Computed example of a mutant assay.
Amino acid sequence: MLKGLALTPPVIGRISIGRVVERDGKRLPEKDDGFTITTQIQSKDGWIKHPLDASLRKSPDQKLRSIPVRLLFDDPDLSFRANYTMFDRSSGRPLCVGDGQNCRRATSAGFQTLPCPTPMSCTIGIEGHCKPYGRLHVRIGGDDELGCFVFRTTGFNSIRTLMTRLRYFQAVSGDKLSCMRLELKLRGKSTALSHRAPIYYVDLTIPQGSTLADIVREACEEQERRIDSGLRQDLLEQAAQEGLALGAFEESDEEGLAVVEEFYPQDGGSDPLGSGSSASGEQTSAPHRKENHALAAKLRQRNQMVNAKPE
């Protein structure tokens, strides 16, 4: 087995709530108010739509705002992985990935494990476009039971909501997340920071018309059927954990370039809250980004004063 290469869940398609468009000679992310399901192939006009995109719409003009999904894993941290992440903007190579306590950083001396103070308090992070970056892997349809569609986001609202929902569903189902029928739902809200313009984020819910008790009961029955058929969910999760642990970083350079283009735009500023204008559909106003930079400058100044004090 190759060392240094993370084995990630097999991706057969993408889910997005935005796209990259060309404007004034630049390729820039643009938010949307509906889901788009695509293949992993790009044309000159963007990502090619997956056949499931059309099949889930009642008409070609209908906005896709909910998608029936299932999860591949019972462990929420395998289905949805979120980190503070900084990429090399030219090569797409991940440079630093952290969880708010520790980070793994590529340096001239090799990979190092260092404290992670979050982008708001990190001098390198605030200047290097570091922000929360999450990817949710879900199953759509039944053609490939081990293949996933990935939803990527740097939106704070999506990341917080998905992390919370997954843990709640895990608890209420008794660790049967992979057996539950669920639904990705697009929600909108307005805030003072968005100047009351709508911003969109992704939620994970039970299907419309069902109750939580119904879904949990179905999950228990589905788990029994899997056990009777000899499927080993525990060994699948073990294999996934071991595969992810093989690499220093999850994204390859090739994948990183696409992520940088969509979620780390050059003129989007360094948004420590991870909700700057991007193809994730969430947006933070320019004045708020300036406030973040000012706060980071104050933190650096305070730290310098503390370090300068004689013992």
Rank of each mutant, 00 (worst) to 15 (best):
M1I: 06
M1D: 15
L2R: 07
G4Y: 02
P9R: 02
P10N: 09
G13R: 01
S16Q: 01
G18V: 02
R19W: 05
V20Y: 04
E22G: 06
R27S: 15
L28A: 01
K31I: 00
D33S: 08
F35Q: 04
T36P: 03
Q40A: 10
S43G: 14
K44V: 13
D45I: 02
G46Y: 04
W47F: 15
W47L: 15
P51G: 13
A54T: 08
S55K: 02
L56I: 04
R57M: 13
K58E: 15
I67P: 02
P68Q: 05
R70K: 13
L71I: 05
L72P: 00
P76A: 13
F80S: 11
R81P: 00
A82T: 06
M86F: 08
D88M: 12
D88F: 07
R89Q: 15
R89I: 15
S90R: 04
G92E: 10
G92C: 14
G92I: 06
V97D: 02
V97W: 03
C103L: 07
R105F: 03
R105T: 14
G110D: 14
P117R: 06
I124T: 05
I124H: 07
H129P: 01
P132S: 11
G134P: 00
L136K: 00
R139Q: 13
D144V: 08
G147L: 05
C148I: 10
F151S: 00
T153H: 01
T153L: 06
T153S: 13
T154K: 00
F156Y: 14
S158W: 06
L162R: 01
T164M: 11
F169K: 00
Q170P: 04
V172T: 07
S173L: 12
D175K: 10
K176L: 15
K176Q: 14
M180Q: 09
M180E: 07
R181Y: 12
R187C: 14
R187Q: 10
K189P: 01
H195P: 03
A197I: 01
Y200A: 08
T205D: 14
E218R: 03
C220A: 15
R226G: 09
R232L: 15
L236G: 11
E237G: 14
Q238N: 07
G243E: 10
L244F: 09
F249C: 09
E250H: 08
E250T: 12
E250P: 05
V259A: 14
V259S: 10
V259G: 08
E261D: 09
E262N: 10
E262V: 01
E262A: 14
F263G: 13
P265K: 03
G268N: 04
G269L: 13
G269C: 04
L273W: 06
G274V: 02
S275V: 02
S278T: 12
Q283M: 11
A286H: 05
P287I: 02
P287H: 08
E291G: 07
E291H: 03
N292A: 12
A297H: 02
L299Q: 11
Q301L: 11
R302T: 07
M305F: 04
P310I: 08
